[in-house]
Amino acid sequence: MSNKKEDLFGLNNDSEEEDVSLDEEEQEDSRFSKSRLQKQSLSDEDSEADSDAEESEAEDTDVDMEEKTAADDNDDESEDDDNELDAEGYDAPKDLSAFGATTKKRVRTAKKVKSLTPEELEKFEKARKKTGVCYLSRIPLFMKPSRVRSLLEKHGEIGRIYLVPEDGKVTARRKKYTKNRRTNFTEGWVEFKDKAIAKALAEHLNMKEIGGKRKSQYYHDMWNIKYLPKFKWNHLTEHMAHEKQARQQRLRNEIAQSNRENKTYIQNVERAKMLQNMEQKKRKREGEPTTPVKQKIQRTFEQRGNVNREVDPKKSGKNAMDKMDSNLKGVLGSIFSKK
């Protein structure tokens, strides 16, 4: 009876279990024939070529994905910058050349900065001297810089606006208890192209209602605005930079102080361990137990003598008159006698 046996390589060979000899098996075995080896070599070459093509395609796709991710990262960075500026209370138009300032773009590659010509420098100084800055001592609740710009730009051309956010502790407390995550500002500065317009506007709008639409939440709020003479925007930036450096210096001093305290504490702990080890070694030499045995404290109190609460009539004040002199008795009797 003949059966089809499956060998280790997964090939089916037609052979009889008992009747077929070893020589016949070698003749009929086609696993190592020339035609089969040639077919295998061709198939291996095709598979290698396919694998190379797949690797090249994968590399191309990886390059494309890297380019896309880089472009997405650039877009995300630009959006993050805009959000940070809005959160910090800074707002400015794209073109600030009329205000004596140049717009700075983020450039990754280092480029040479061209020096200004004398004509451009003179124009820049004139534009800067012509500008005026107004101070807002109070900002209505949750009013953003864009809203301030929309309210003031109808009176004159506005350059940069900077509003100071409220204290972080106050913001955290408000977010915790009221669940209000809006940004609130306390004070601000507004730059105008013409200082004469800025001065007139400050005198006109100060202590007047903001107005606008009656449905607006800022309709009944008051303007608290003041013109700052001989004050330019670079003075504000210098003051902010100075405050930032002072804050960083205070932070560095606090960190250094905490490091010193931590170092002294560690030194004291190490010194205490060293003294404890010395004491244990001394006890070992003397034959005493290394760990001190805790003894119960027994307090002794002196016992008072027995006190007799009963009053002796002889010692009491009832018989005191008998022991007194007769003359003294007469005097006391005349004083306390009933008349």
Rank of each mutant, 00 (worst) to 15 (best):
L228E: 09
A256Y: 08
E45P: 06
T186E: 04
N184W: 02
N74Y: 08
P292H: 04
E28G: 14
S97F: 11
E25K: 10
K193F: 00
K294L: 15
F99D: 03
D95C: 09
N180H: 08
R36I: 01
N268W: 02
K144G: 05
D76A: 13
A49H: 07
D91M: 02
V190N: 10
D64T: 00
D80C: 06
D73Y: 14
K230Q: 07
N12E: 14
Q295Y: 02
G212F: 05
E59H: 05
A241C: 07
K208N: 10
N184C: 13
Q38L: 11
S33K: 01
W233S: 10
K199S: 01
K34C: 13
M324N: 09
S21C: 15
K208G: 02
L96A: 07
V107C: 12
D44I: 13
Y219S: 06
D81M: 06
R247H: 15
G168D: 09
A200D: 13
I161G: 07
Q217W: 06
E55I: 12
K315I: 04
Q303H: 03
K215H: 05
L141G: 05
S334N: 14
P93E: 04
S216D: 15
A53E: 07
S56Y: 12
P118K: 06
P93M: 07
K213D: 12
K114S: 07
K179H: 11
P145F: 11
D73S: 09
T237S: 11
E48M: 09
E286P: 02
D19K: 13
A172E: 06
Q38P: 02
N180Y: 06
K339L: 01
G89F: 14
T183V: 12
R247K: 15
W233T: 14
G159C: 13
S326Y: 02
N253H: 11
A198L: 01
E157S: 12
L228S: 10
A92E: 04
K208L: 00
L8D: 15
E120N: 12
K244L: 09
E24R: 13
A198M: 03
E6G: 01
L96I: 09
K5Y: 12
G211I: 02
E243G: 08
E57H: 12
L205F: 03
P118M: 05
I297Q: 09
L201F: 02
N308D: 14
G159S: 10
S326M: 03
V170D: 14
K339Y: 13
L85T: 04
P140H: 14
L85H: 01
M274D: 12
F192M: 01
K318I: 07
H239K: 14
K112C: 00
A196L: 01
K126S: 15
L236E: 01
K175W: 08
N277F: 03
S326L: 05
M324G: 04
K329A: 00
E77I: 00
E191D: 13
F32R: 05
I266W: 06
D7C: 15
K112Q: 03
E238F: 10
L96F: 08
L332K: 09
L22P: 00
K126R: 05
E66M: 04
Y177Q: 04
F32I: 02
S334I: 07
L136D: 01
E59G: 00
K323C: 00
S41F: 09
K339S: 01
K175Q: 14
T300A: 07
R214V: 05
P118E: 05
S326V: 11
R271A: 15
L96H: 05
Q248A: 14
D50K: 12
R128W: 03
I158D: 03
S56T: 10
G188E: 00
Y219I: 00
A127L: 03
L236Q: 07
